[in-house]
Amino acid sequence: MLEYRVVARRIDAHGGMARCKGAKITLDTDVNGRADAFNPAELFLAAIAACMLKGIERVTPMLRFNLRGVEVKLHGIRQDSPPKMASVDYELIVDTDEDDRRLDLLHTNVRKFGTIFNTVSAATRLEGRIVRAAKG
């Protein structure tokens, strides 16, 4: 089993700092929000996106899938009572010349083998689609 460790500290009433390895992320913990940091819901969505991107990096060599770029757009809905993420929708945009069957295969692999993807999809509605990037 793999293990992960992150340490987060309060900086002040407006933010905190999370660290792992040699990386750090400023956290938006201000009750009024702040524009220069991710709040917890945004970090949650970013974790899903990072999982999908990492999954693509992992499977493209095995599938011999050629791409020029990838973008993930996510939209989360938070319910108030009890507070939780009720749903997450995504659009996975791939710049590729691969055919539709291969694009669907990539999507299947992203959904099947992503640790964060699988954890989130077991807890809430996580749905989306893969599309080809527009030419030009």
Rank of each mutant, 00 (worst) to 15 (best):
N118V: 10
M62Q: 15
D97S: 05
M62I: 13
D89F: 01
V7L: 07
R34Q: 11
M85R: 08
T60A: 09
V120R: 03
R10Q: 14
S87P: 01
R9C: 13
I56V: 14
L92G: 07
N32C: 14
L103D: 03
E91K: 15
D100H: 03
E127S: 15
A18H: 11
A18R: 02
E127H: 03
G128L: 06
K21N: 12
E3P: 10
R10V: 08
R19K: 13
D99T: 13
A18D: 02
Y90S: 05
F38L: 12
A133R: 04
T29F: 02
A37N: 07
K54R: 09
E98R: 07
T115P: 11
R102I: 05
G33F: 05
D80C: 13
E127W: 05
A23L: 06
V120F: 03
D80P: 11
D95E: 07
V94G: 04
K73G: 06
D97K: 00
R101G: 15
A47S: 11
A35E: 09
E3D: 01
V120Q: 05
L27M: 12
T108G: 00
V88G: 12
A47K: 01
L103C: 00
A23C: 15
L103I: 14
K135S: 11
D12V: 10
G33V: 12
R78L: 12
A13H: 10
A134N: 02
G114H: 02
S81M: 09
E3V: 07
L67C: 05
V110E: 02
S87K: 15
R10F: 14
R5T: 08
A18T: 01
D28T: 02
V110C: 01
G33R: 10
D36F: 08
N118Q: 03
E98M: 13
R129Y: 02
P61K: 06
A49M: 03
A50I: 01
G15A: 13
A37F: 02
I130Y: 00
N32A: 10
P61F: 00
D89L: 06
P40F: 09
Q79F: 00
D28L: 09
R132K: 15
M17I: 15
L92C: 03
A41L: 08
D28K: 03
L126Y: 10
E127P: 00
T29R: 09
F113G: 05
A123W: 09
P83T: 07
F65N: 07
A18W: 02
A13W: 08
K135W: 08
M17C: 11
H75Y: 07
T60W: 04
R78P: 13
P82L: 14
A13G: 15
I116T: 03
N32K: 10
A23F: 15
N66D: 13
T60L: 06
R34N: 13
F117D: 15
S121G: 11
V110N: 09
V120A: 12
N66M: 04
F44S: 09
D12W: 10
M52S: 04
R9N: 00
N39Q: 02
